[in-house]
Amino acid sequence: MMKTVYTENAPQAIGPYSQAVKAGTFLFLSGQIPVNPATNEVVEKDIVVQTKQVMNNIKAILDKESLTLDRIVKTTIFVTDMNQFATVNEIYGNFLGDHRPARSTVEVSRLPKDVLIEIEVVAYIGNI
Rank of each mutant, 00 (worst) to 15 (best):
M2C: 11
M2P: 08
M2Q: 14
K3T: 05
K3Q: 13
T4E: 05
T4S: 13
T4W: 08
T4P: 03
T4G: 04
T4Y: 12
T4N: 10
V5R: 02
V5D: 00
V5C: 02
V5W: 03
V5P: 00
Y6H: 08
Y6G: 01
T7S: 05
T7W: 02
T7N: 03
T7C: 04
E8I: 06
E8H: 13
E8K: 15
E8S: 14
E8L: 12
N9V: 00
N9Q: 10
N9Y: 11
A10N: 03
A10Y: 04
P11N: 06
P11W: 09
P11R: 10
P11Q: 09
P11V: 02
Q12I: 03
Q12T: 05
Q12Y: 10
Q12S: 10
Q12M: 10
Q12A: 11
A13G: 03
A13C: 03
A13N: 01
A13H: 03
I14K: 09
I14C: 03
G15E: 04
G15N: 07
P16W: 15
P16G: 15
P16C: 14
P16Q: 15
P16D: 15
Y17D: 00
Y17P: 00
Y17T: 00
S18G: 03
S18N: 06
Q19T: 04
Q19Y: 08
Q19V: 01
Q19H: 08
A20T: 02
A20L: 02
A20I: 01
V21H: 07
V21I: 12
K22G: 05
K22L: 13
K22I: 02
G24L: 04
G24D: 07
G24M: 07
T25V: 11
T25P: 12
T25N: 15
F26V: 00
F26I: 01
L27H: 06
L27N: 03
F28M: 04
F28Q: 02
F28E: 00
L29I: 01
L29A: 05
L29G: 03
L29D: 01
S30I: 01
S30L: 02
S30T: 05
S30V: 01
S30P: 03
G31N: 01
Q32Y: 05
Q32S: 11
Q32L: 07
Q32A: 12
Q32M: 12
I33Y: 02
I33V: 05
I33N: 00
I33T: 02
P34K: 14
P34W: 12
P34H: 14
P34T: 08
P34G: 13
V35W: 09
V35H: 08
V35R: 11
N36E: 11
N36A: 10
N36K: 13
N36I: 05
P37S: 14
P37I: 04
P37V: 04
P37G: 14
A38G: 10
A38E: 15
A38R: 15
A38V: 08
T39V: 07
T39H: 13
T39M: 10
T39L: 09
T39F: 14
T39N: 11
N40L: 10
N40K: 15
N40D: 13
N40G: 11
N40W: 13
N40H: 14
E41C: 12
E41Y: 15
E41M: 14
E41R: 15
V42F: 08
V42Q: 04
V42E: 04
V43T: 07
V43K: 10
V43Y: 13
E44R: 14
E44Y: 14
K45A: 12
K45V: 03
K45T: 05
D46Y: 12
D46C: 06
I47D: 04
I47Q: 05
I47M: 06
